[in-house]
Design a protein around this nucleic acid. Structure first.
Length: 280
DNA sequence: CCCCAGGCGGTTG
DNA sequence: CAACCGCCTGGG
């Protein structure tokens, strides 16, 4: 086990970051969020102005700085991002300022590419508790177990394990009609047609069209993968929530094709703002 | 019982 | 190309 402390980090609230719907394997546990990160448990909490990050495995300072910090997106400058967002998202009612205030501290995680690919395929026409349940079932069935504090946890399944399994086993995990979409994604992935290394070097439109070749990945799921794992902050996933938010606060005044460099972050702010207001 | 949930693919006019 | 429709499944 390792522990790291960070001080004077502006614009980072672990609770908001892990509660804004971008990840499915973290849960609130008394004083912070913890969950499976690769092959270990990661716990992040905030005590006054100090961020405390614990890992179940022993990790080096290098690993922390080169892997954990980028994962938490702490190397990104959110003053700069927020300034750009305001230029494109301000309106007569100034809703973006309220959203930025309520949502301040949300960061866009750099999540594992394959895990994000599969998780957001599962997310379609589905709700968050059930998405989490399905991912947990898949991990228990196809992931690798590891123990921590006397409890068993499971890594996210490998592409090979999901590709080679019987499709009926995916059904048993609750995937429903998305089972063949998962198979399709694994096939493309293992053929190297949608690799992270390729996508990270492409522009946004190429990233979209490449991912949308996969049966079961449409525009919204592709945008989520691009935003939450490839970390192209130009991606702007439009789900039913965001569609409602835009209609409610912007009407037709927002030009979807001209939203600056960080609309993905603005999307998170608006989404969280609207859900927070609902009292969740 | 019906309805919906962070969509998508397929069909129809 | 816009508008529908069915879809696994579990919860309200």
């Amino acid at each position: 086990m390792s522990v790291f402390y960070l001080n004077n980090i502006k614009h980072f609230d672990p609770n908001k970051t892990f509660d804004c719907g971008q990840c499915f394997r973290f849960d609130y546990d008394k004083d912070g969020y913890s969950g499976v990160f690769r092959d270990m448990i990661l716990k992040i909490k905030k005590n006054n102005e100090t961020i405390i990050i614990e890992t179940s495995k022993d990790i080096s300072k290098d690993y922390f700085e080169n892997t954990i910090v980028p994962y938490l997106d702490l190397d990104e400058n959110y003053d700069e991002i927020n300034a750009d967002i305001v230029k494109y998202f301000d309106s007569d009612n100034h809703v973006i300022f309220k959203a930025m205030d309520v949502s301040d501290g949300i960061r866009i995680l750099r999540q594992d590419y394959f895990e994000t690919l599969i998780s957001f395929i599962i997310s379609q026409n589905n709700n968050i508790p059930r998405i989490k349940k399905i991912i947990q079932s898949l991990s228990m069935k196809f992931g690798n177990p590891f123990e921590y504090n006397g409890k068993l946890y499971y890594t996210f399944p490998s592409p090979e394990s999901l590709y080679n399994c019987d499709i009926e086993e995916l059904r048993q995990c609750g995937c429903g009609f998305r089972d063949r979409y998962i198979k399709s994604a694994c096939e493309y992935y293992l053929q190297g047609k949608i690799s992270y290394d390729y996508l990270i070097k492409q522009d946004y439109n190429t990233q979209l069209s490449t991912l949308m070749q996969v049966c079961g990945i449409g525009r919204k799921v592709a945008d989520c993968i691009i935003l939450y794992s490839i970390h192209n902050l130009k991606a702007f996933p439009i789900d039913v929530w965001i569609k409602r938010v835009i209609e409610k606060y912007y009407g037709t005044s927002l030009d979807i094709n001209n939203l600056g460099s960080y609309p993905g972050v603005a999307q998170q702010y608006l989404f969280y703002y609207e859900r927070y207001k609902k009292g969740e």
